[in-house]
Design a protein around this nucleic acid. Structure first.
Lengths: 268, 268
DNA sequence: GACGCTATGGAATAAAAATTCCAAAACAGG
DNA sequence: CCTGTTTTGGAATTTTTATTCCATAGCGTC
């Protein structure tokens, strides 16, 4: 079997071979697949540490791929190497100027929007409100999560994370227009997520929860949102829109942080 | 004189020093200035040949710049090559050791993880595959989207965006274990999203679509994923995990870009 | 043209890296 | 539970690479 002559060939060979490999060699394959870009600038020993295998396993892995050894594999990547760091700002600008509307240009836009959102979130986050929200949720029994339309991905992920952390959580997803509002019980708490244009169903559930005396944590876009009036604690997320769509990066980051904080607090 | 601590500092030092150097050392300086990007992936001998000087001259040159030797200079460039990963690991460890667990600290971590993911996505995205995927989806009738567990938020948002752009799309969400595989019709296409540990249902639907001859667009974490074999086009996303959870920022950015590209292509 | 200084090339050495090999462990099949 | 096979880890070895050192060449000055 001969050595891959290009990085594409390398990738194909890697994909072909991975399934057939035993444990340690598969670790190599997976680490290499996830860190292909570091091959050019690393030593066998460094990569072995990263993959958590002995160096000899990595050598075997190179040979299975068809190379005579690590050196030959590395040569492939060193020759193809062209660093990203003349910087990605220019690259982004190029994209915008040239192929506007091309999928790659769109991707650059959404990446940029996401980065901005995250940056703003880091700057503007209300840490006190976040802690308070975490405390309220940690003290509750079942958590009810609602978020529809574009907030739905956030609500579903939040529920997923709660479940993974063994926090009892219920996603109010409106499937079949079934209304689970009577599942709201004393001692529970509610997380409601909605952005302009605010979803009536979400506001209705939040209002219901509030009426029953449950603490409502609102995740929304601004303090003047109708959700704010219904919430015990409001978390605002400065999401940057691109076109009609928001990246949700910041909203998700905030939500997961909240969920993990709650999960850890309840374990302790 | 101490070693430059960043590539900017390196450039400044190099510019300062070049004029004062004798012939051979100036050759080094000029060659290095013109081939800064090769430092990370070359040996002393190779660079010396390129600059047309003996290796010892290059060594002296490194020392004049303030480094202890070539190795130290090279390290600067090897590390700068992918600044994201090396210190992410340490940061995470620091967090665990220090005041970890506070909601604000968690938030900072997820913001950082998201930012890194987006950065890597911008660098590593396979633009050809993205265009190809967009073209395949634009040419299809109904789009079938599947993604379960932690990929579910992505799948649901993708479907939302498709709907908003008036692209007929169907979300296979597994509600009630109802299986909608027979909704896959000739002329349709399928978007499947799954990350390790890969969801059987997602793979099954992708396989089914492939068997019926529909183009499958796979969104997954690595090229060696089982989804790759079932897909006409594979898009990989280098998501940075924090603890057991991924930020999804990069995955979402990629997905929305894809959806918007498809939407615009179909309008035209 | 001789003297002192700096610059240079190359050979010698030290350090680090890659690669091989073998004994032990894990594993599958009978 | 034993037996033959595959997989594994690590130590030994080889190769490559970086680094040092010194003799010599060049060059300006007196």
């Amino acid at each position: 079997m001969s050595a891959p002559a290009s990085i594409d060939e390398f990738r194909i060979r890697l994909a072909e071979v991975t399934d057939t490999l035993p444990k340690r060699l598969r670790q190599c394959a997976e680490f290499i697949a996830a860190n292909t870009d570091r091959i050019a600038v690393s030593t066998v020993a460094e990569l072995a540490v990263g993959a958590d295998v002995p160096p000899s396993a990595l050598m075997r892995f190179c040979q299975i791929l068809g190379f005579s050894g690590f050196t030959e594999m590395q040569r492939l990547f060193r020759e193809a190497y062209s660093p990203g760091w003349p910087d990605y700002g220019t690259r982004l600008k190029n994209l915008k100027e040239n192929g506007a509307g091309s999928p790659a240009a769109l991707l650059a836009e959404f990446v940029e929007a996401g980065r901005l959102s995250l940056e703003q979130l880091a700057k503007s986050a209300d840490e006190a409100a976040l802690s308070q929200a975490a405390a309220q949720l940690a003290g509750a029994e079942t958590l009810h999560v609602i978020g529809l339309r574009r907030a739905y991905p956030v609500a579903s992920y939040l529920t997923y994370v709660f479940e993974k952390m063994q926090v009892p959580a219920m996603l109010h997803d409106g499937v079949g227009k079934l209304d689970h509002r009577h599942a709201l019980r004393k001692g529970d708490a509610c997380v409601a997520i909605t952005f302009a244009p605010y979803s009536d169903e979400t506001l209705a559930l939040a209002a219901d929860a509030q009426a029953r005396g449950l603490p409502v944590i609102g995740i929304t876009d601004r303090l003047t949102s109708p959700l704010a009036r219904l919430s015990a604690t409001v978390l605002t997320v400065p999401e940057v829109d691109f076109g009609a769509f928001r990246s949700l990066s910041a909203t998700l980051a905030l939500s997961i942080a909240l969920a993990v904080a709650v999960g850890t607090a309840r374990e302790g």
